[in-house]
Amino acid sequence: MAGYFLLGPQRPVVNLATPFGAVDDGRSVAVVSAGWQDAEADIDDVHEIVKRPLVDLRLYQRAEAVLGSEARLREVYRERQDRLQEQQRLYRLRLRQSMLAARRLLRADGDPAILEPEQRHAISQQRALDRHHLQRISAIHGDADSAIADIRPPTLTEHIAEIADVLSGCVTVIITGGNVAVLLNRLRLFSLGPLLAQKNIIAWSAGAMVLADKVVLFHDNTPQGNRDAEVFDVGLGIVNDFVFLPDVKHRLDLSDKVRTALFCRRFAPATCLTLDSGSLLHYEGGHVAAAHGVRRLSRTGTLRRMRAR
């Protein structure tokens, strides 16, 4: 049975070696570092830790080649990206207002008999908006996937076959952090979800985020002010019912209990899990087999230790 190991940023604490020791079979290890974009090939640091032959899947580079040579595919891709961007823009307009209302209600004082139903309803409206957004995104992907299936671009088909061949010789795949949108985009282009699900996966930060059923972007401390967490895309759906939050130490304002509580309640029943540097979550057979340094956001806005279950 494949095991999935999800880690926080590999800086300052490097703990990639710990899960690798548990799955190492002496064979080559595949690496997906498309999130690093044009620095994709800089995997020497990974090699130094795992000390096994690495097979660089070069998804970023392959995508550049495929999209460069397949004009029709490029057109479909561009159209999909335009639609996704517009969808995100419209969602963001609604999100801002609805989050503002929800936060105000959660901060309000008053008769619980009157206030609490309003708070619950505000959160359910937020969930409905997130759900609707995710459905719209899925529909856009569906349209693009159908169009791509119709085109059957030969270069893409060749690369998919080549990647499948390479992966057949590896039992473990490492997925690095980086730009989560680029990473997810490349994984989706080469239809890697089902193939990866059969492997042991060690993934950190953005790599962990894309394994969930939805990808949520967040950062409370951007220089131009607070932004509300956004549902960004459908993930690969390999580790479901979790929202992975890398580097919470730097990205979330945990002193604001209302904000944190709303984050938790908004995405329930999914569990929001922190992945700070040094943390490790082992997921296997549909359960959390072990968790070290991983915390979950609670309904009261505090962090609780995540335990195996």
Binding site: P9, Q10, R11, G35, G177, G178, N179, V180, A181, V182, S205, A206, M209, L217, H219, T222, P223, Q224, R227, P246, D247
Partner: peptide, 14 residues
Amino acid sequence: LSWLFPGPVWMVYE
């Protein structure tokens, strides 16, 4: 600087 040259902080999770 971050207004003139916005970084990828929103999208990048290293």
